[in-house]
Amino acid sequence: MPATRLEVKGLSAGYGPTRVIDHMSFEVLPGGRLSILGRNGVGKTTLLASLMGLTTHHGGRVFLGEADLTDSRASTRARRGLGYVPQTRDIFRSLTVEENLVAGLKDRGREALDEIYVMFPRLAERRRHFGTQLSGGEQQMLSLARTLLGRPSVLLLDEPLEGLAPVICDQIMEIITALASSGEMTIVLVEQQIERALRFADHVMVVERGKAVWSGECSQLRDAPEMVDRLLGVGVH
């Protein structure tokens, strides 16, 4: 599936009657890389979950290319090309690494697994282990690998580096960067590690209390540490 444009127009969403995302709009062009930054609890995870159709919709539209996905279920959105790697990793605990991957194969043949194992050699070594026996980094790799098997045109990554050792963070960022460089998918990254997020993306959006308070090119933020400090309360070193 080729990379697709993701467009969000005036999206408002939350949990039940509680509105967390408030009238948010943005666009990521095909093959683009958007990092979403913000303090804890400002609605970044809710935003990605809303794009996936997992929250209560209050208003606005979500487009994948020309297709309006606003009223679609999560499974339909996934089949249309939205790939979501949640913060909780969400691996199937009763299945082994390989079984987790096979469950995500859909109509693809088992040769697709070989491609994944080339990309994630660590998973190849751990293929017989159950999800609960994996380290955090391996779980993250498995969650990402399983999503990639669905050949998404837009990949939504929710804090993929959370709680991981720096060396594992490097490995995962390397994989994500390679995916982005291939031009085969549009990537939206929510990440707390600001430096890595800014290095990865071409555009950035800062979220505060469910609203986009700043958006622009990454270089603008990289070159203005005082702005990062003002927007996010941390400095980039």
Partner: peptide
């Protein structure tokens, strides 16, 4: 042990997660 069977087990584990990977 087929993709179909494993997806059924995945649904048993967590149907929402299964939906997120496109399972009906």
């Amino acid at each position: 042990h087929s993709p179909f069977g494993l997806l059924c087990q995945a649904i048993k584990d967590d149907s929402l997660r299964a939906r997120m990977i496109g399972a009906r």
